[in-house]
């Protein structure tokens, strides 16, 4: 039986009818049409379906839609604001951190969760943050570089802001 599910999706309230056995991934993609979140394995192994729930990166394929009742869910579509890409997205472009792009949304979400918690991560911490995001194209080097560059850029921005104050 379908029941109403209420949560916040990319900053906006969302109410949707959903079955108990619906995964968050299928809800986002097939019911809500946000296909930026990708399906790669459906067994919580590839990370292409990574979204953020209340600030934490999780595999949406291993999450029931019902679990996000009252939660804030952020997908890749919720990153760019007012037509502006986030520094992380821009660095992914500049550093050539993707090829086919299929793992990219999940990768960016994992990277965002890391930088939100830890704005100045070591390379090891970056690699740990994306250990659950399999990329079949890049060998990860440029992804790590993009995340490092984002951290540096954000630190610079923060320092500049401080300076202004």
């Amino acid at each position: 039986m379908k029941k109403i599910l209420s949560f916040t999706l990319n900053g906006e309230p969302c109410e949707v009818l959903c079955e108990d056995n619906r995964s968050l991934l299928d809800l986002i993609r097939d019911d809500l049409g946000l296909t930026g979140t990708k399906k790669g394995c459906e067994e919580a192994e590839c990370g292409a379906c990574t979204v953020m729930i209340d600030g934490r990166p999780v595999n949406s394929c291993a999450t029931l839609a019902r679990e996000v009742e009252g939660c804030e869910v952020l997908t890749v579509e919720g990153l760019a604001k007012d037509g502006k890409l986030t520094p992380l997205q821009k660095q992914f472009i500049d550093k050539w951190a993707f090829q086919c792009g299929y793992c990219t949304p999940g990768m960016i979400m994992s990277a965002k969760a890391l930088l939100d918690h830890n704005p100045n991560p070591t390379e090891q911490e970056i690699r740990e943050a994306i250990e659950g995001n399999l990329c079949r194209c890049t060998g990860y080097a440029k992804i790590v570089e993009a995340i490092q560059a984002t951290a540096a850029e954000m630190a610079e921005m923060a320092a500049a802001q401080k300076g202004e104050v």
Binding site: L34, T35, G36, T75, V76, E77, Q89, F98, T104, I108
Partner: peptide, 14 residues
């Protein structure tokens, strides 16, 4: 850069 860059980092790429 990639001609498909914007679409790929925003999830718009189909």
């Amino acid at each position: 850069t990639h001609v498909d860059a914007y679409e790929k980092v925003t999830g718009k790429a189909k």
